[in-house]
Amino acid sequence: MTQCFDAALRAFQPALPLAVGLSGGADSTALLLACAERWPGQVQAIHVHHGLQAAADGFEQHCRALCARLQVPLTVQRVDARAAPGQSPEDAARQARYKAFEVAALASQAQAAIQSIALAQHADDQVETLLLALSRGAGVAGLAAMPMHWRRAGLDWHRPLLRVPGPDVRAWLQARGETWVEDPSNRDERYTRNRIRSRLLPALQAALPQFRATFARSAAHAAQASALLQELAAEDLVRVGTPPRVAALQALSPARQANVLRHWLRTQHATTPSTAQLQALQRQIAACRTRGHQIHLRVGRGFVQCRQGELHWYNSAVLTPTST
């Protein structure tokens, strides 16, 4: 069962030095062990202490002991991962982790010049992410799930285990006699991801033994479609302008209009409309045939308003109009 894990690590060719996100769980423990053995002296670890549960101190102690044994430098970042109103606890923790990884990597530049960060999500995590997206009615961007490689904050980010089944990761550790810590929250079925893990994955394994590979192909197809839609949206945004002109938007098909509006709101204003909000905005755009027609709708975290034939978005918290 460990051949898949070994093959994934052989194929992993990051720019060095490398930092590994280390939670103390089985997946990140295995990834750090494998990377430290392959690139001695070129690997560091970053542990994010969320402070959300009593077990968090135990996670940190495990990470410190492991890194001391491996002679791997460890950075511990303590964060406030409490969810904001309307934000899921999982999303809040994820955003806090990424920010902490960036801060730790940039802080080390003067000493070790970290070039890459490796995260330990595996094939089961990818399936869970895809099923979560389906449960929320996500579009192709959501169904693309998690990429294996991307650029962020001047760093290369990798998920080298994304095609490795979760059981294979644990089998690799067990074969070496290694230990890890178990996060008690992973058994809490109040969280949808945990219900998917405990109930759906075993059923999929019984009914569709190749589900990890086939779901990964579907996610890859969705990622390709999402990239094409982003290219089209960028071209259409040049055509309609920033701020978008209502008349130019009306010349587009409904699908292209929705695509470019999402792109405008996400790239220019870092906000995402709900399906209902976007549909309401499109209805107003279609009805906007006179100079006196008013548009004033809540969209994402703020409002869209029509002024002089152009759409403007402003943040409802500060009521500051923004036109780019």
Score class of each variant (00 low, 15 high):
T2E: 13
T2I: 14
Q3A: 15
Q3D: 15
C4W: 11
C4E: 08
P14R: 08
A15P: 08
L18M: 09
V20M: 13
L22C: 05
G24S: 06
A34D: 02
C35S: 10
C35P: 00
W39F: 06
H50L: 15
E60Y: 11
C63E: 04
R69N: 14
L70N: 02
L70Q: 13
V72Y: 03
P73S: 09
V79N: 00
A83Y: 02
A83L: 00
G86Y: 03
K99V: 04
S108E: 15
S108R: 12
A110N: 09
A112D: 13
A112L: 13
I117N: 01
H122Y: 07
H122Q: 09
E128Q: 11
L134M: 11
S135T: 06
A144F: 08
M146W: 07
L161E: 08
L162H: 05
P167D: 03
R170H: 04
A171N: 13
W172E: 10
A175Q: 10
E178F: 15
T179P: 02
D183L: 03
D183Y: 03
E189T: 12
N194W: 07
L208T: 01
L208H: 11
F215L: 10
F215D: 02
F215T: 14
A216Q: 05
A223N: 04
S226G: 09
A227D: 14
A233W: 06
V240E: 02
P244Y: 01
Q250L: 08
L252M: 08
L261Y: 07
L261M: 03
L265S: 04
Q277E: 14
A286V: 02
A287E: 09
L297T: 08
R301G: 13
G302K: 04
F303Q: 11
V304H: 01
C306K: 14
Q308Y: 09
E310L: 11
H312G: 09
T320P: 04
S323N: 14
S323L: 13
